[in-house]
Amino acid sequence: MEDDKVNSRDKARIAIMELANMISVPMSLNAVVRLNVPDAIWQGGANTPLSAAQILSLVLPSGGGDAENLQRVLRMLTSYGVFTEHLEDSSSSERKYSLTDIGKTLVTDADGLSYGPYVLQHHQDALMGAWSLVHEAVLDPTTEPFVKANGEPAYSYYGKKPEMNGLMQKAMAGVSVPFMKNVLNSYNGFEGVNKLVDVGGSAGDCLRMILQKHPTVKEAINFDLPEVVAKAPHIPGVIHVGGDMFKSIPAADAIFMKWILTTWTDDECKLIMENCYKALPVGGKLIACEPVLPKESDDSHRTRALLEGDIFVMTIYRAKGKHRTEEEFKQLGLSAGFPHFRAFYFHDFHTVLEFQK
Results as ranks from 00 to 15, higher is better:
I41D: 06
S335H: 09
A203C: 13
S28R: 13
A230D: 07
G103Y: 04
I55A: 03
S297G: 05
P26N: 06
T303N: 03
S186L: 08
V282S: 08
K96T: 09
K11W: 10
V33M: 04
K148P: 07
K231I: 07
T142Q: 12
E268F: 11
E152Y: 15
F329W: 01
S132K: 14
A252N: 01
S91N: 07
G204K: 00
D111F: 12
L211A: 01
Q212A: 15
I311Q: 10
F256C: 02
F341C: 05
N165F: 14
H122V: 07
L19A: 15
V228A: 11
G63I: 00
V82M: 00
H214K: 07
L261Y: 06
G159I: 01
S93P: 11
I316H: 05
G321E: 05
A232E: 03
W264A: 11
K11E: 14
N194W: 11
S156E: 14
K148L: 09
G200K: 02
S92Q: 05
E136S: 10
T303E: 01
N188Q: 12
P215K: 07
A126N: 13
Y80A: 11
S92V: 09
I102A: 12
K5H: 10
G63M: 00
L99R: 09
A343H: 02
F83N: 04
N222V: 02
L307H: 07
S297P: 15
Q356C: 13
P339N: 08
I16F: 14
A31C: 14
H240C: 09
P141W: 12
L106E: 07
V183Y: 01
Y277I: 06
N150I: 09
Q43M: 08
T143P: 06
T108V: 03
G44D: 12
K213V: 00
D109S: 06
G333P: 01
L113K: 07
G81Q: 07
G192I: 03
H214A: 08
A254D: 00
L87N: 11
Q124W: 11
E296T: 15
K160M: 06
Y155G: 09
F346V: 10
S132P: 13
P215E: 03
N194G: 10
D299L: 14
K295A: 13
A53V: 09
L113Q: 03
T100S: 04
E152L: 15
L207R: 04
M164E: 14
V147L: 11
P233R: 02
R302E: 05
F329N: 03
A319Y: 02
A343I: 04
N36D: 11
L353F: 05
V217P: 00
I255M: 03
P236T: 12
G337T: 07
V238F: 00
K322Q: 10
D111K: 14
H347V: 13
